[in-house]
C-alpha cells in the first residue's frame, strides 16, 4: 500500500484546502478513498451519523502534479482511510503560501497522512513544514460500506436558490425550531417551513427550474407539476450543509423522495458533492 502526491500550484493548494474545509464543516470523521483516478470523501448514512450521508468526488489529475498510488492488491487497487477532515484542513490552512505540498501515506507511531510543505524562503536554505495527520487504515472487508450511493428514486428534482439566501433563512428558522419541512414541485417552486407553538414561518422560492433528468427519469405527465414532495429534516443537518459552502457552486440541486430523503448535489467545476439528509417523522 503506497500513496504519494504532490501539489505545486498555489491555486490547486487553495482549491484543495477549500474542499477539505467544506468537508470538515459537514462531518467530524469520514473515509478517504484513494483510487488511481480519484479521491473520494465518503460518509455512509449510518445511524451513528444521524443517517446523514456524503459523497464527494475529486479527480486527482485536477489537483495533483504527481500522483502515485498502489492499492491493497492489483485487483483491489484502492486505499481506504478514516480521516478527521478538520485536522487535514488545519494542516493545509497553515501552508497556503507553500511553493509545493507533498501528501504521503506514512507509518510513524501510527499510520499518518504526512503533509510536507516547502515554504518560500529568502535565503538558500529551504524551509519545510511537516504535518503528520493520524489516520486509520480500513480493512478490505469493510470497503463495501463506502461505495457510491445510488441515486435515490426521487419524486421531485429542483435547482436550489442562491445558497446564501437559503442559509440566511435556515439560520433564522433554526433559532425558532429544531425541524424544518422542505418541499418542492416540478413547477420550479420550493418552500421551507417551520411550525412551533409560537410561530409558523414559510419561505416561498419560485422559478427555480427543474433539472432535465427529473422529467426523463419520471415518465412525463405522471406527476402533477403542482404537487409538492416534502421531507421533514433535522434543521441542524441542513444548516451544516449550507454553512460549509465556501464558494457558490456552478450548479446546486436538490432531489426529494417524499417523506424519505433529501439529496443535495453541488457541482463546482471538477468537484462534486452529494449530501443525504434522511427525513424524520
Amino acid at each position: 500500500m503506497k500513496f504519494r502526491g504532490k501539489l505545486v500550484d498555489v491555486a490547486c493548494v487553495n482549491h484543495f484546502t477549500r474542499v477539505i474545509t467544506t468537508i470538515s464543516k459537514l462531518t467530524k470523521t469520514c473515509v478517504l478513498r484513494l483510487t488511481p483516478d480519484n479521491l473520494f470523501f465518503v460518509l455512509s448514512g449510518k445511524v451513528a451519523n444521524g443517517g446523514v450521508g456524503m459523497w464527494c468526488e475529486l479527480p486527482q489529475a485536477n489537483f495533483f502534479d504527481e500522483y502515485q498510488m498502489e492499492g491493497v492488491s492489483s485487483e483491489d487497487n484502492e486505499i481506504c482511510l478514516e480521516v478527521t477532515p478538520e485536522n487535514l484542513s488545519r494542516a493545509l490552512k497553515t501552508i497556503q503560501c507553500a511553493k509545493a505540498v507533498k501528501v504521503k501515506l506514512t507509518r510513524k507511531h501510527c499510520p499518518c497522512l504526512t503533509i510536507a510543505a516547502e515554504l518560500p524562503t529568502l535565503s538558500s536554505t529551504s524551509r519545510v513544514v511537516t504535518h503528520d495527520v493520524p489516520v486509520d487504515v480500513i480493512p478490505r472487508r469493510l470497503w463495501h460500506e463506502f461505495k457510491e450511493p445510488s441515486m435515490p428514486d426521487f419524486d421531485v428534482s429542483i435547482y436550489l436558490p442562491p445558497l446564501k439566501t437559503m442559509k440566511n433563512v435556515v439560520d433564522r428558522m433554526k433559532n425558532l425550531s429544531n425541524f424544518l419541512v422542505i418541499e418542492a414541485n416540478l413547477n420550479g417552486e420550493m418552500n421551507l417551513k417551520i411550525e412551533t407553538d409560537l410561530v409558523s414561518v414559510t419561505t416561498h422560492f419560485k422559478d427555480l427550474g427543474n433539472p432535465p433528468w427529473g422529467k426523463t427519469s419520471l415518465s412525463p405527465g405522471s406527476r402533477d407539476p403542482e404537487a409538492m414532495a416534502q421531507a421533514r429534516v433535522d434543521i441542524r443537518k441542513l444548516q451544516q450543509f449550507l454553512m460549509g459552502q465556501q464558494v457558490n457552486p456552478s450548479k446546486a440541486m436538490c432531489n426529494i423522495v417524499h417523506e424519505g430523503v433529501v439529496h443535495l448535489i453541488l457541482l463546482h467545476e471538477d468537484v462534486s458533492l452529494q449530501y443525504f439528509i434522511p427525513a424524520v417523522a
Binding site: 436558490p161 439566501t165 433563512v169 407553538d197 409560537l198 410561530v199 409558523s200 414561518v201 414559510t202 419561505t203 416561498h204 422560492f205
Partner: peptide, 8 residues
C-alpha cells in the same frame, strides 16, 4: 422570495 410568518 416571499416569507409568510404567523406569530401567535
Amino acid at each position: 422570495v416571499v416569507t409568510v410568518c404567523k406569530i401567535n
